[in-house]
């Protein structure tokens, strides 16, 4: 009996946090569209999320493309289908690997930073100070971060697409002896617009989720340095799981028929 009660309690508290999160997301999103706006803060976040993440994203993409070419070559060589390597690389990168790996890397970098910064502001009463200065913390802190992540993640993923395909090209041409012109032609030939677009849609959703988790956990952190620490961990873990889950849902929405 008490076992059932425990499960019930866990389920109810799960629903309660889901409700809180939904309210938080709705409130923050409404502040994105309502004035006043803070263009300086938005620009700062855009630079932080887009520009400073580029090295990490570039390295992740190039190695992923390289290893993908190598592995798929090994597989396809067993039934003389080496020509498919280019297509497999470009489709895997644009549809799945660039958005998901970029999302996970940015979750580690940006989601954690947001949770730590906002969490510290919460426990040192800086967020309270904002409201005594007649400034809405949702508008000032959360909205610019959500919007910047929503805009910048697709840009980052587009760059990751290009770098990832280039990584595959490097290995195929210089290590596996493919003809450069034919490899490029094979890459283009079977690539459709929807492959790239689906990846960018994923990126936008992931960006929103990363910033939402970072801000939500930071905003509700309690009790000093330890609270900020666990907010940071929760932000990264929950964003990563949401990214993987939503990735499946979006893929299914785009490609299952």
């Amino acid at each position: 009996m008490s076992f059932v009660a425990t499960i019930g309690r866990i389920f109810l508290s799960f629903l309660a946090s889901l409700g809180r999160l939904t309210i938080f997301a709705g409130l923050s999103a409404s502040h994105i569209v309502r004035p006043p706006y803070y263009p300086r803060l938005l620009l700062r976040q855009i630079i932080e999320i887009g520009y400073y993440s580029l090295p990490v994203i570039g390295l992740t993409a190039v190695f992923t493309g390289m290893v993908l070419a190598l592995q798929s070559y090994t597989g396809f060589a067993r039934f003389n289908a080496e020509g498919a390597v280019a297509t497999v690389v470009v489709l895997s990168i644009t549809r799945e690997l660039a958005p998901v790996l970029t999302g996970l890397m940015v979750a580690g970098r940006i989601g954690a930073a947001m949770a730590a910064e906002i969490g510290t502001m919460r426990v040192t009463e800086q967020i309270d100070a904002l409201s005594t200065l007649a400034t809405n913390p949702y508008k000032y802190l959360i909205a610019p971060r959500l919007l910047a992540a929503l805009i910048m993640l697709p840009c980052c993923v587009l760059i990751a697409d290009i770098i990832g395909v280039f990584g595959g090209y490097l290995v195929a041409v210089h290590k596996l002896g493919f003809n450069p012109a034919i490899y490029l032609k094979n890459s283009w030939q079977f690539l459709e617009l929807v492959d790239v677009v689906s990846g960018l849609v994923k990126a936008g959703v992931f960006g929103f989720l990363i910033a939402l988790m970072g801000c939500y956990h930071g905003f509700h952190s309690k009790g000093g340095a330890q609270g900020v620490g666990s907010a940071t961990t929760n932000a990264v873990v929950s964003a990563s799981i949401l990214i993987l889950g939503c990735n499946y849902l979006i893929t299914e929405a785009f490609f299952s028929r």
Partner: peptide, 13 residues
């Protein structure tokens, strides 16, 4: 209103 917080609560960024 104006408020001085117990720990000052300055914006450290």
């Amino acid at each position: 209103l104006g408020m001085l917080f117990q720990g000052a609560a300055l914006f450290d960024s």
